[in-house]
Protein backbone atom coordinates (compact mmCIF):
# COMPACT_ATOMS: atom_id res chain seq x y z
CA UNK A 1 0.00 0.00 0.00
CA UNK A 2 2.74 2.38 1.02
CA UNK A 3 4.75 1.51 -2.09
CA UNK A 4 1.76 2.19 -4.26
CA UNK A 5 1.28 5.56 -2.60
CA UNK A 6 4.93 6.46 -3.07
CA UNK A 7 4.54 5.47 -6.70
CA UNK A 8 1.60 7.77 -7.16
CA UNK A 9 3.43 10.62 -5.44
CA UNK A 10 6.31 10.19 -7.86
CA UNK A 11 3.91 10.16 -10.77
CA UNK A 12 2.14 13.28 -9.59
CA UNK A 13 5.42 15.07 -8.91
CA UNK A 14 6.62 14.18 -12.38
CA UNK A 15 3.35 15.38 -13.88
CA UNK A 16 3.68 18.61 -11.96
CA UNK A 17 7.24 19.22 -13.12
CA UNK A 18 6.26 18.53 -16.71
CA UNK A 19 3.26 20.83 -16.41
CA UNK A 20 5.23 23.65 -14.82
CA UNK A 21 8.05 23.46 -17.35
CA UNK A 22 5.57 23.25 -20.22
CA UNK A 23 3.78 26.25 -18.80
CA UNK A 24 7.06 28.21 -18.40
CA UNK A 25 8.17 27.39 -21.91
CA UNK A 26 4.78 28.51 -23.20
CA UNK A 27 5.11 31.87 -21.44
CA UNK A 28 8.71 32.34 -22.50
CA UNK A 29 7.89 31.52 -26.10
CA UNK A 30 4.91 33.84 -26.17
CA UNK A 31 7.08 36.79 -25.22
CA UNK A 32 9.17 36.39 -28.33
CA UNK A 33 6.37 35.33 -30.68
CA UNK A 34 5.60 37.01 -33.95
CA UNK A 35 2.01 38.02 -34.57
CA UNK A 36 0.25 37.24 -37.82
CA UNK A 37 -2.73 39.39 -38.66
CA UNK A 38 -5.03 38.06 -41.35
CA UNK A 39 -7.36 40.40 -43.20
CA UNK A 40 -10.05 39.26 -45.61
CA UNK A 41 -10.86 41.85 -48.23
CA UNK A 42 -13.99 40.79 -50.12
CA UNK A 43 -14.58 42.19 -53.59
CA UNK A 44 -16.28 41.51 -56.91
CA UNK A 45 -13.35 41.55 -59.30
CA UNK A 46 -11.70 44.78 -58.20
CA UNK A 47 -14.79 46.51 -56.86
CA UNK A 48 -15.50 46.86 -53.19
CA UNK A 49 -18.69 45.17 -51.95
CA UNK A 50 -21.46 47.43 -50.74
CA UNK A 51 -24.28 45.24 -49.48
CA UNK A 52 -27.66 46.08 -51.09
CA UNK A 53 -26.15 49.14 -52.73
CA UNK A 54 -24.00 48.20 -55.73
CA UNK A 55 -24.77 46.33 -58.91
CA UNK A 56 -22.29 43.85 -60.31
CA UNK A 57 -22.29 41.79 -63.49
CA UNK A 58 -21.39 38.12 -63.65
CA UNK A 59 -19.50 36.52 -66.56
CA UNK A 60 -22.81 35.79 -68.31
CA UNK A 61 -23.91 39.42 -68.28
CA UNK A 62 -26.40 38.87 -65.46
CA UNK A 63 -26.66 41.88 -63.19
CA UNK A 64 -26.94 41.36 -59.43
CA UNK A 65 -26.70 42.98 -56.02
CA UNK A 66 -25.34 41.25 -52.91
CA UNK A 67 -27.24 41.21 -49.63
CA UNK A 68 -25.27 38.58 -47.71
CA UNK A 69 -21.79 37.18 -48.12
CA UNK A 70 -20.35 34.92 -45.43
CA UNK A 71 -17.95 32.01 -45.23
CA UNK A 72 -16.19 29.91 -42.63
CA UNK A 73 -12.42 29.81 -42.44
CA UNK A 74 -10.93 27.24 -40.06
CA UNK A 75 -7.83 25.20 -39.20
CA UNK A 76 -5.53 28.02 -40.22
CA UNK A 77 -1.80 27.41 -40.31
CA UNK A 78 1.36 28.85 -41.78
CA UNK A 79 3.51 26.31 -43.55
CA UNK A 80 7.19 26.17 -42.72
CA UNK A 81 10.01 23.90 -43.82
CA UNK A 82 10.72 23.30 -40.12
CA UNK A 83 7.49 23.44 -38.13
CA UNK A 84 4.07 24.65 -39.21
CA UNK A 85 2.42 27.29 -37.02
CA UNK A 86 -1.28 26.67 -36.43
CA UNK A 87 -3.86 28.88 -34.80
CA UNK A 88 -5.47 27.26 -31.77
CA UNK A 89 -9.21 26.64 -31.78
CA UNK A 90 -9.30 28.14 -35.25
CA UNK A 91 -12.85 28.93 -36.42
CA UNK A 92 -13.81 32.22 -38.04
CA UNK A 93 -16.97 33.34 -39.76
CA UNK A 94 -16.03 36.03 -42.27
CA UNK A 95 -19.14 38.17 -42.72
CA UNK A 96 -19.32 41.03 -45.21
CA UNK A 97 -21.91 42.63 -42.94
CA UNK A 98 -19.56 42.72 -39.95
CA UNK A 99 -16.23 44.51 -40.39
CA UNK A 100 -14.82 43.11 -37.15
CA UNK A 101 -15.19 39.57 -38.46
CA UNK A 102 -12.93 40.32 -41.42
CA UNK A 103 -9.62 40.35 -39.57
CA UNK A 104 -8.00 38.53 -36.67
CA UNK A 105 -4.54 37.84 -35.26
CA UNK A 106 -2.70 34.97 -33.60
CA UNK A 107 0.84 34.36 -32.36
CA UNK A 108 3.33 32.23 -34.29
CA UNK A 109 6.87 31.16 -33.49
CA UNK A 110 9.44 33.30 -35.33
CA UNK A 111 10.73 31.68 -38.50
CA UNK A 112 10.51 31.34 -42.26
CA UNK A 113 7.05 30.57 -43.62
CA UNK A 114 6.07 29.82 -47.18
CA UNK A 115 2.28 29.77 -47.36
CA UNK A 116 -0.98 30.43 -45.56
CA UNK A 117 -3.33 27.44 -45.38
CA UNK A 118 -6.87 27.01 -44.18
CA UNK A 119 -10.00 24.96 -44.56
CA UNK A 120 -12.85 26.77 -46.32
CA UNK A 121 -15.73 25.52 -44.17
CA UNK A 122 -16.12 23.65 -40.88
CA UNK A 123 -14.47 20.24 -40.45
CA UNK A 124 -16.82 17.24 -40.51
CA UNK A 125 -16.34 16.44 -36.81
CA UNK A 126 -17.82 19.78 -35.78
CA UNK A 127 -20.79 19.14 -38.06
CA UNK A 128 -21.78 16.07 -36.06
CA UNK A 129 -20.80 16.93 -32.47
CA UNK A 130 -23.89 18.72 -31.24
CA UNK A 131 -24.33 22.33 -30.12
CA UNK A 132 -21.26 24.52 -30.62
CA UNK A 133 -20.47 28.02 -29.50
CA UNK A 134 -18.33 31.00 -30.61
CA UNK A 135 -18.12 31.35 -34.40
CA UNK A 136 -19.98 28.03 -34.70
CA UNK A 137 -22.97 29.13 -32.60
CA UNK A 138 -26.17 28.20 -34.49
CA UNK A 139 -27.46 31.72 -33.85
CA UNK A 140 -24.99 32.88 -36.53
CA UNK A 141 -27.56 31.63 -39.04
CA UNK A 142 -25.08 29.28 -40.69
CA UNK A 143 -26.46 25.96 -39.39
CA UNK A 144 -29.15 23.95 -41.16
CA UNK A 145 -31.91 23.07 -38.72
CA UNK A 146 -33.62 20.43 -40.91
CA UNK A 147 -30.50 18.63 -42.15
CA UNK A 148 -27.84 19.01 -39.47
CA UNK A 149 -24.66 20.61 -40.69
CA UNK A 150 -23.04 23.95 -41.38
CA UNK A 151 -23.57 26.20 -44.34
CA UNK A 152 -19.89 26.63 -45.22
CA UNK A 153 -20.42 29.66 -47.42
CA UNK A 154 -23.42 31.83 -48.19
CA UNK A 155 -24.09 34.31 -50.98
CA UNK A 156 -27.47 36.01 -51.30
CA UNK A 157 -28.73 38.85 -53.41
CA UNK A 158 -31.13 39.98 -56.09
CA UNK A 159 -30.93 39.83 -59.84
CA UNK A 160 -33.34 40.66 -62.67
CA UNK A 161 -32.27 37.31 -64.16
CA UNK A 162 -33.77 35.40 -61.24
CA UNK A 163 -37.23 33.95 -61.69
CA UNK A 164 -37.75 33.59 -57.94
CA UNK A 165 -39.84 35.82 -55.67
CA UNK A 166 -38.42 39.37 -55.44
CA UNK A 167 -35.87 38.33 -58.05
CA UNK A 168 -33.74 36.88 -55.35
CA UNK A 169 -30.98 34.35 -55.51
CA UNK A 170 -29.67 32.31 -52.59
CA UNK A 171 -26.63 30.08 -52.45
CA UNK A 172 -26.19 28.23 -49.14
CA UNK A 173 -23.30 25.90 -49.79
CA UNK A 174 -22.72 22.99 -47.41
CA UNK A 175 -22.32 19.22 -47.08
CA UNK A 176 -19.55 17.69 -44.98
CA UNK A 177 -19.56 14.03 -45.99
CA UNK A 178 -19.64 11.62 -48.90
CA UNK A 179 -19.62 12.54 -52.56
CA UNK A 180 -21.16 15.97 -51.94
CA UNK A 181 -18.55 17.11 -49.43
CA UNK A 182 -17.83 20.76 -50.19
CA UNK A 183 -14.93 21.27 -47.75
CA UNK A 184 -11.93 22.79 -49.50
CA UNK A 185 -8.34 23.02 -48.36
CA UNK A 186 -6.95 26.35 -49.46
CA UNK A 187 -3.22 26.96 -49.83
CA UNK A 188 -2.05 30.49 -50.61
CA UNK A 189 1.66 30.53 -51.35
CA UNK A 190 3.56 33.68 -50.55
CA UNK A 191 4.50 35.87 -53.54
CA UNK A 192 6.99 34.22 -55.91
CA UNK A 193 6.96 31.20 -53.59
CA UNK A 194 9.57 32.92 -51.46
CA UNK A 195 9.65 32.25 -47.73
CA UNK A 196 8.98 35.24 -45.52
CA UNK A 197 10.68 35.62 -42.16
CA UNK A 198 8.31 36.29 -39.28
CA UNK A 199 10.43 38.11 -36.72
CA UNK A 200 9.69 38.00 -33.00
CA UNK A 201 7.64 40.83 -31.56
CA UNK A 202 6.65 41.95 -35.05
CA UNK A 203 3.19 41.90 -36.63
CA UNK A 204 2.99 40.55 -40.15
CA UNK A 205 -0.25 41.40 -41.92
CA UNK A 206 -1.51 39.14 -44.70
CA UNK A 207 -4.26 40.71 -46.76
CA UNK A 208 -6.32 38.14 -48.63
CA UNK A 209 -8.63 39.06 -51.42
CA UNK A 210 -11.81 37.00 -51.83
CA UNK A 211 -13.44 37.60 -55.21
CA UNK A 212 -17.17 36.78 -55.47
CA UNK A 213 -16.79 36.67 -59.25
CA UNK A 214 -15.16 33.25 -58.85
CA UNK A 215 -18.49 31.74 -57.72
CA UNK A 216 -20.03 31.89 -61.20
CA UNK A 217 -17.53 30.03 -63.34
CA UNK A 218 -14.32 28.01 -63.66
CA UNK A 219 -14.85 25.18 -63.88
CA UNK A 220 -18.67 25.17 -63.56
CA UNK A 221 -21.00 27.72 -65.17
CA UNK A 222 -23.66 28.88 -62.72
CA UNK A 223 -26.24 31.19 -64.28
CA UNK A 224 -28.74 32.96 -62.03
CA UNK A 225 -31.43 32.45 -64.68
CA UNK A 226 -30.98 28.68 -64.33
CA UNK A 227 -30.00 28.24 -60.69
CA UNK A 228 -31.13 31.01 -58.37
CA UNK A 229 -31.71 28.76 -55.39
CA UNK A 230 -29.00 26.33 -54.28
CA UNK A 231 -29.64 25.77 -50.60
CA UNK A 232 -29.03 22.11 -49.86
CA UNK A 233 -26.07 19.74 -50.13
CA UNK A 234 -25.80 18.09 -53.53
CA UNK A 235 -24.40 18.32 -57.05
CA UNK A 236 -25.02 22.04 -57.52
CA UNK A 237 -23.53 22.96 -54.15
CA UNK A 238 -20.48 20.89 -55.01
CA UNK A 239 -20.24 22.63 -58.40
CA UNK A 240 -20.23 26.07 -56.77
CA UNK A 241 -17.66 24.97 -54.19
CA UNK A 242 -15.39 23.83 -57.01
CA UNK A 243 -15.66 27.39 -58.32
CA UNK A 244 -15.33 29.34 -55.09
CA UNK A 245 -12.29 27.46 -53.89
CA UNK A 246 -10.46 29.66 -56.42
CA UNK A 247 -11.75 32.95 -55.03
CA UNK A 248 -8.77 33.69 -52.79
CA UNK A 249 -5.42 35.24 -53.51
CA UNK A 250 -2.90 37.09 -51.39
CA UNK A 251 -3.22 40.77 -52.13
CA UNK A 252 -0.39 42.04 -49.99
CA UNK A 253 1.87 41.06 -47.11
CA UNK A 254 3.01 43.84 -44.80
CA UNK A 255 6.02 42.86 -42.69
CA UNK A 256 6.58 46.35 -41.26
CA UNK A 257 5.85 46.80 -37.55
Amino acid sequence: MMIKKNGSIRLITLLLIVTVSFQKKEIKKRDSFATVKIVFNNTVKNSRIYLYDSTYTNPFGEKYTITKFRYYVSDIFLKSTIKNAAEKNSYHLIDQGNVESQSFSFPVAPGDYTSLNFLLGVDSLHNVSGAQTGALDPTKDMFWTWNSGYVMAKLEGNSPSSTLVNNKFEFHIGGYAGEYNVLKNIQLSFPEDKPIYFASNKTITIIINADVNAWWHNPNEIKIAEHANITSPGKLALAISDNYKNMFHIEKIITGN
Binding site: N127, V128, S129, P138, F143, T145, S148
Partner: peptide, 16 residues
Protein backbone atom coordinates in the same frame (compact mmCIF):
# COMPACT_ATOMS: atom_id res chain seq x y z
CA UNK B 1 -32.88 11.08 -40.11
CA UNK B 2 -31.92 14.64 -40.96
CA UNK B 3 -30.74 15.46 -37.45
CA UNK B 4 -27.34 14.05 -36.55
CA UNK B 5 -27.10 14.94 -32.86
CA UNK B 6 -29.62 15.22 -30.03
CA UNK B 7 -28.33 18.66 -29.03
CA UNK B 8 -29.14 20.32 -32.35
CA UNK B 9 -32.63 18.79 -32.77
CA UNK B 10 -34.54 21.56 -30.90
CA UNK B 11 -33.28 24.13 -33.43
CA UNK B 12 -35.62 22.57 -35.98
CA UNK B 13 -39.04 22.95 -34.29
CA UNK B 14 -37.94 26.16 -32.58
CA UNK B 15 -37.22 27.96 -35.85
CA UNK B 16 -39.76 26.29 -38.16
Amino acid sequence: GGINHIEVQPLSPLTA
